[in-house]
């Protein structure tokens, strides 16, 4: 049903429940496992004993987008992979968030001039938090995760259901627009 998400406008009861839900969600953000490059090893280090993301409830890295809240982009997205990332993002249940980790995911980094790379994850996905570094240290990613938690707590979900359900990158470069559409196209009607 989604009492909060389907609401037309906020009232006292809805906002109170929404605050409670956001508080709960921010303490149980689960990751979608999508290690695209070397930053994912720093992400793995964050799961270890020294940094231990389990202690803030974010220790679960799910193998299925259906059980995850956060899509971590730990590296450059090639033009081949871009439609796949868009598809995985669209298979995640609302509400969902994206973290761009490292220079490559922010702007293309060292591969910016490459013929096969996108210029950053935000050309294909709506990124919430950017974590700079090459590679990102686990502390930095942890800080980024804390920032995301603050965002999750601070952003209302009321009326979310009125958003377009399937995300299509708004400014697709023409040369790989066809590929993204192919990955989404046959499923677009629901």
């Amino acid at each position: 049903m989604g009492l909060i998400e389907n609401a037309e406008r906020p009232n006292f009861i809805l906002t109170t429940i929404d605050t409670l839900l956001r508080w709960g969600r921010s303490h149980s953000l689960w990751w979608c496992n999508a290690g695209s490059a070397c930053c994912s090893l720093e992400f793995a280090a964050m799961g270890g004993a020294r940094y231990d993301m389990d202690r803030i409830g974010s220790g679960l890295v799910r193998a299925s987008p259906r059980q995850s809240d956060v899509l971590l982009i730990p590296g450059p997205i090639t033009k081949k992979m871009a439609p796949i990332f868009v598809r995985v993002y669209n298979q995640m249940p609302d509400p969902k968030w994206v973290i761009a980790m490292g220079s490559c995911a922010i702007s293309g980094g060292a591969f910016r001039e490459s013929y096969s790379m996108t210029r950053g994850a935000d050309t294909v996905l709506p990124v919430d938090v950017y974590v700079p570094g090459c590679p990102v240290r686990p502390e930095a990613l942890f800080y980024g995760l804390l920032k995301l938690r603050a965002r999750v707590r601070g952003t209302s979900n009321i009326g979310l259901a009125h958003r377009e359900p399937i995300y299509v990158p708004p400014d697709l470069p023409p040369e790989w627009e066809a590929e993204v559409r192919e990955f989404l196209g046959e499923h677009e009607a629901c």
Binding site: L3, I17, L21, R87, N90, I166, C190
Partner: peptide, 10 residues
């Protein structure tokens, strides 16, 4: 409370 918006792609 749980939001549920199933579509074919999901």
């Amino acid at each position: 409370l749980a939001p549920s918006r199933p579509y074919a792609l999901k």
